[in-house]
Amino acid sequence: MTTKAASIRPSGARMKPRTRNTINGLLFASPWLLGLAAFWIYPTIASAYYSFTKFNGVQAPVWVGLANYIKLFTDDSNFWDAVYNTFYFAAVSIPLAIILAFALALMLNAKIRGQVVYRTIYFLPTLVPEVALALVWVYMFTPVSGIINAPFQYFGHRGPCWLTCEAWSRQTLVLLALWIIGQQVILYLAGLQDVPQDLYDAADVDGANPLHKFRHVTVPIVTPVIFFHLVTSVIGALQFFAIPYIMTGGTGFPANSTLFYSIYMYKQGFQYFQMGLASAMAWLLFVVTLIVTLVIFRTSRLWVFYSGGEQG
């Protein structure tokens, strides 16, 4: 079809359509081709190189081989604290977020009155800028006198110490993260609206009870959304930064329990100017992210159901 169009075209179109398309394609893509090179490919390679050097960002990097990696693995307890906190956060908050978002979407999908109002309300915390959200949380979760502890106070109890003690701080951050799942709720809702009605009708004919229908119709259709949520939230959790950083100023208080991987990397790079070490941390994170996503992708064929193609 393009050949025809080209032959009819008046002057100026002497080129073969294939050549012209290639030139046009490259021209239109050129901002991103430059952007990829400048803001993605070059920095990724440079960061790999820096990770093998001692580098303060100003003077020329000095090659030190694996020293940064060895130091992180053998001689840096902060690093391991940060790794533990980050994994704890990911492992606990992601399953809870999936369950909560899915459950909220299910309830909203029951054609109830005020759906739009509910949806807006669940989305509200997602709209508040992270800085404001983190600070209002600090204020709300102030031990003893904060609003969250008011019910405890009513019963003459001091209530949990939330963000100020190690026994509670990790769990509190997980709890806070559950507040910002508005986007995921919308995704699940969109997924639920894709469930074809005739599947439910067929299940009715087979005499399925609501639980069966949920297990064998609703859940399979929504698995692609769960999959998407899982992948994006793993990536997101491993990069968790702004909220704990704003709350604590990056100190990791209490007892390093809010020191997350990204915070520690930021401190190494931009406060102690150990940019080689920070680059090594970045690359380790990259490799872990790749492995985890790859595993999720690999296992996805076992549990993700795509209604389009039938190959499992």
């Binding site: 490259l26 990829l36 920095p43 820096y50 960002g57 990204s262 940019m275 920070a278 994170l285 990259f286």
Partner: peptide, 29 residues
């Protein structure tokens, strides 16, 4: 626009979504 490299570029583009921002942070700075 149908041009030869576009599918490769598309896959590459989606792949950059997996790259943690931390990796490019320091060299860009």
């Amino acid at each position: 626009i149908p041009w030869p490299g576009r599918n490769f570029l598309f896959i590459f583009t989606v792949a950059t979504l997996m790259l943690p921002f931390q990796v490019t942070l320091i060299p860009l700075f």
